[in-house]
């Protein structure tokens, strides 16, 4: 049995039903913020009331937000000391991926103690839901989502695909 919880919305009272008072209440809230920020920004310009924070708008892309340390951003593949990918193409990330955006093809590694490496490693950012399961699943710490690149926009769907080279050397212009 699925447990259901019935949520009842409280009925509108008289003042809410005659509509106009609510309109003015909304206008009041908007103007309150406007005048507060207007006044505080002015005051800040004169070096006053600095301890009170005014509303902020980040003017992207000239300004960028400083991301929290653990935020999940575009993927990258980590390197071995010799520069080759750490990935052993075990396909745990591909298996766990709920969006099925990862496609790996494995091949033989010349060193039998490593055995396996990716021949190709493609991530389709158009499908990726940035859940971070791939990072969790990786037994080799080979995939991370810490590039701090959030700009994944592109002009076409194929341009949203990342290949092995791109993942090993992440650049912000995707």
């Amino acid at each position: 049995m699925i447990k259901t919880k019935v949520v009842s919305e409280p009925p509108l009272n008289f003042w809410e039903r005659i509509y106009l008072p609510e309109v003015f209440r909304g206008l009041w809230i908007t103007s309150k913020h406007f005048f507060r920020n207007f006044f505080l920004h002015l005051a800040h310009a004169f070096g006053l009331l600095r301890h009170l924070k005014a509303g902020v708008t980040i003017e992207y892309p000239e300004q960028t937000y400083i991301l929290p340390k653990r935020s999940r951003t575009r993927h990258r593949l980590t390197h071995r000391p010799d520069g080759s990918p750490r990935c052993v193409a075990c396909m745990m990330c591909e298996t766990v991926c709920p969006a099925r955006c990862i496609a790996i093809v494995a091949e033989e590694h010349p060193d039998p103690n490593i055995e396996k490496k990716p021949k190709s490693f493609d991530i389709d950012l158009g499908k990726c839901v940035f859940c971070g399961f791939c990072v969790e699943a990786c037994p080799e710490d080979a995939i991370r989502m810490d590039t701090k690149i959030v700009n994944t926009a592109a002009y076409s769907r194929p341009a949203m695909k990342l290949d092995l080279n791109e993942l090993l050397n992440p650049t912000s212009s995707s």
């Binding site: 052993v88 075990c90 490593i114 396996k116 037994p139 080799e140």
Partner: peptide, 9 residues
């Protein structure tokens, strides 16, 4: 325990 590279996994 090299299951990641083992075909039997």
């Amino acid at each position: 325990l090299d299951c990641p590279v083992c075909d039997q996994a």
